[in-house]
Simulated scan of single mutants.
Amino acid sequence: MYTVDFVEFPSKTASASGRFFTEAFGWTATPYGPDYADVAGPGINLGFQADPEEQPSAPLVTIRTDDLEQARRDVEDAGGVVTVEPFTFPGGRRFHFREPGGCELAVWCSAE
Rank of each mutant, 00 (worst) to 15 (best):
C103H: 15
A16Q: 12
A40P: 00
G102Y: 09
L60T: 13
E54Y: 14
D38T: 10
C103Y: 14
A111D: 14
R94Q: 13
G18K: 02
V61D: 05
P86Q: 10
E112R: 11
G79A: 12
I63C: 04
E54W: 14
A14K: 08
R72W: 08
D77F: 07
V82D: 08
G26S: 03
R93W: 03
V81M: 12
F21P: 03
A16L: 10
Q49C: 10
T65A: 02
T28Q: 04
D77S: 15
G41I: 00
Q55G: 06
S11F: 01
S110V: 09
R19C: 00
G43F: 01
L68P: 01
W27H: 02
A16P: 04
G26W: 01
E76Y: 07
P86H: 05
T88M: 03
T13E: 15
C103K: 12
A71S: 13
A111S: 10
T88K: 12
H96V: 06
A40S: 09
T28C: 00
A78S: 15
E76H: 08
F95H: 11
Q70S: 13
S11N: 02
F9L: 15
T28N: 00
G43A: 00
Q70C: 04
P31Y: 09
Q49Y: 01
K12E: 15
E99N: 06
D77T: 12
N45T: 12
E23A: 07
D35C: 05
G80V: 08
E8H: 06
Q70W: 01
W108N: 02
S17F: 01
V7K: 04
G80M: 09
N45D: 11
F48I: 04
V75I: 15
P86T: 08
D51P: 00
R19K: 11
I63T: 06
